[in-house]
Simulated assay, not measured.
Amino acid sequence: MKEQLSRNIGLYRREKGLTQEELAQSVGVTYQAVSKWENAQTMPELALLPDLSRTLGVSIDKLLGYVSQDKPMTIYEEEYQTDSYYWGTEPNEACYQVLQAMPPTKRLRLIDIGCGEGKDAVFFARNGYAVTAFDITDAGVEKTRRLAERVGVHVDVFKADILQYRFEEPYDIVFSSGVLHYMKPELREEIFANYKRYTAPNGLHVFNVFVNKPFIAPPPEKEPHAYKWHSGELLAHYRDWLIEDSAELVFDCHSSGVPHQHAMATVMARKVEGTALVGSNRH
């Protein structure tokens, strides 16, 4: 919780356009105290949390890293309430790329970012990976658990917000499909640095993102918290990694019952063994 709180204080302070000194004056502490909070050297006293919450414009729960329960963050919160699986239970094609590129001939830790109803996470668990997964929807987390139980595998699944959750332990494979458009553009550099830092040597990232194209009409789903990417933007995060595969494609979609198209960029990148951890002091 200490590291999560420190990150959130800095994140929401910057979003509000406040300096450390301005935040300090607002809650009645020194700017050195704010600096120590944001560097996880100390934690604010419990009595200061209400003032911090008001000044930063977020709830105390959100400040502490808990996902807000008062409003849905995705349109799929309601879709996942049904017994049927909105996306089906067949894995994404990218799952087979992972299986081929990094088969679980030894224990490999994989995390599925934004697992939805769990079809990909369960596929990986069935094939021998040690799988961790998270999603922002309660229904998605519960359906992931049920699907894993149905096929007799274990997935360590929990609820978290992609904007707030950060890795604190290393993974061999980091996977996400159809989710990274919920990542605000101003947070992408920091979040990707965290993902890369906590990737084991020779580890793999397999991601896709929706990209903005002027010749493709907006999708029928109205996503209030979605932010499209630009061509080449995802790939640029891996200029210091080995790019094993990268593509951009346009495909038809009927997920909403209304035929439409998406443009998507994909990347498979490997952290070449011996590369220093991002943000570490290794030379």
Rank of each mutant, 00 (worst) to 15 (best):
E93I: 10
G65E: 13
A40T: 08
T74F: 07
A133M: 06
Y80W: 12
C115K: 00
S84F: 09
N92F: 03
E77G: 07
E93D: 07
L46R: 13
Q41I: 11
L64V: 01
Q69W: 08
V122Q: 08
G88Q: 11
V27N: 04
L49F: 12
S59C: 13
E22V: 11
G114Y: 03
Q81K: 15
L63S: 01
Y76D: 09
E22L: 12
P50A: 04
R107H: 08
E78Y: 06
G65H: 06
T55A: 11
D112G: 06
L99D: 03
L49Q: 03
E93S: 10
S35N: 14
Q69A: 08
E78G: 04
D70H: 13
L56E: 13
E78R: 15
K119D: 00
A139H: 08
V34N: 06
T55S: 13
V58R: 09
P44D: 06
L46A: 14
L23Q: 04
F123I: 10
V58W: 13
V98K: 06
V98R: 02
L48M: 12
S59F: 00
I111R: 04
K36Q: 14
P91F: 06
Q25P: 00
A101K: 10
Y76N: 04
M73T: 11
W37V: 07
T74M: 02
T105M: 08
Q25K: 15
E77I: 03
V67W: 05
V131R: 10
G128R: 05
L108M: 08
K106C: 11
T105A: 11
M43L: 13
E79M: 11
K62T: 14
S84I: 05
Y129P: 06
P50R: 03
M73S: 07
R109T: 05
L52W: 02
M43E: 15
V67E: 03
A133C: 09
K62Y: 12
E45C: 01
G114S: 06
M73A: 12
S35T: 08
T74Y: 10
G128W: 03
E22Q: 15
V58L: 08
T30G: 14
G28C: 01
T30A: 09
R54V: 05
G88A: 11
L110P: 01
A125T: 11
I113G: 03
V67R: 13
T82S: 14
I136V: 15
Y86H: 11
M102L: 15
A130F: 10
G118F: 06
Q81H: 08
E90W: 05
K71P: 02
T137M: 10
K62S: 02
Q81E: 15
C95H: 06
S53G: 09
T82N: 14
V98I: 13
Y96F: 14
Y31N: 09
D83N: 13
L108I: 01
L23H: 10
T132G: 01
E45P: 03
D138Y: 09
G65N: 04
L46Q: 11
Y86M: 04
L48E: 00
E117M: 12
E77V: 12
V58T: 02
P91Y: 00
G28F: 05
E77A: 15
E21C: 09
L108D: 00
W87C: 05
E77L: 00
